[in-house]
Amino acid sequence: MQRKSKIIITAITALSLIIIIFLILDLTGLWSRDVLDTTYTGEADAHTVVITVDSQPLIYDGTSTFNPMMNVKAVDDAGNDVTNLVSYSITSTPSSIKKVINYSINQKDYSFATAQRNLELENYSAPSISFNCDPRWTIGEEQLNTFIDDLITNDDILADDGYGNDISENIYSENINNITSPGEYNVKFSVVNFLGDKSTVSGTLIIDGKTRTDEVNITLTQSSVIIPLNSPFNPYDYIESATDIDGNDVSHDLSVSCDVDTSQQGQYTVIYYIQGLDQISKKLTVVVS
């Protein structure tokens, strides 16, 4: 009986060893497969790039188009011209007429590369902003969104790039968007030229809470007109004036609805109005005969 028990125990032990060996081999295979499946293949090394620039300063006098890429070239380690990948920025120095142009390539597959070149400015006086009116305005809240555009359109505010070129369209306000209620505000107007130089001036803006466009007065030279067949017709010729509550000219805000066909006899109606204020309008009757 004891001998039989020993045989059974031996058999169980051998079977257990076999099972353990199979488990070890299987786990080893799984581990090997895991390692194989997660092997990382890195990207190829980035190309090195050399940016070359003229050793002499770039001199600019404002008489031609500014070209900071003049005599700049970039070549990678395969000999390819990659100048088109070069970007630049301009930094100031203590001298207002001397700056530094910083060139760089910061692109995927290319190592970071930089170069610098001095920039010297001739006949340069820095950007400036000037007013053609008293820099103190009183407007309604509804005029805030178009206030700066109106100043520029009316040439009430002008900006120069430092070389005599008009850059008024680039004028912006640094704090007008903070105005949310009636009151008196110090408004800052700024402009930045192509060299990154900035000019800032201030004006006083009063928001009085009145709605000016609600009291626009449109006056026509006449209420009706008779014109010959096939003769020219310009509806704007019949506007005498358009003023707001303060007497300011707002004729540039007028829109005209006109379907006059001078090649066809008949009676037509021309309507003068301000966009969004349909209740404020004037009509001109046009008879083509």
Rank of each mutant, 00 (worst) to 15 (best):
K73T: 15
G62E: 05
A78R: 15
T63E: 14
A46R: 12
I59D: 05
A78V: 00
A78F: 06
I59F: 04
E43L: 12
M69C: 05
V50Y: 02
E43F: 07
D54W: 06
A44C: 02
N80F: 10
N80H: 11
V75K: 01
T52I: 13
T63I: 01
L58K: 06
T48L: 08
D61R: 00
D61M: 00
M70V: 06
S55R: 15
A74R: 01
N80A: 10
T52Q: 14
M70K: 14
T52C: 02
V49H: 03
V72R: 02
D54C: 08
V49F: 01
A44K: 15
A74D: 01
A44Y: 06
A74H: 00
L58A: 04
T48V: 06
Y60Q: 13
M69K: 08
E43N: 12
A44P: 00
D61T: 00
A44Q: 13
D54I: 08
S64Q: 15
T63A: 12
V53C: 11
P68T: 00
V50M: 09
D45S: 14
M70Y: 09
N71Y: 13
D77W: 05
D54T: 12
M69T: 09
N80R: 08
D77V: 09
T63S: 09
D54V: 04
V49D: 08
A74T: 01
D45N: 11
V72Q: 02
D54M: 09
A74Q: 00
G79R: 04
D45K: 15
I51E: 01
I59H: 09
G62A: 06
T65N: 11
N67P: 08
S64N: 11
F66L: 10
N71W: 09
T63Y: 01
M70G: 01
D77I: 14
D45V: 11
K73E: 14
N67E: 12
G79S: 10
D76F: 05
Q56D: 14
V75Q: 01
T48R: 09
A74L: 01
F66G: 06
G79M: 04
Q56W: 07
G79N: 03
D61L: 00
D61Y: 01
S55P: 04
D77G: 05
D77H: 07
L58R: 01
D61P: 00
G62N: 10
E43Q: 11
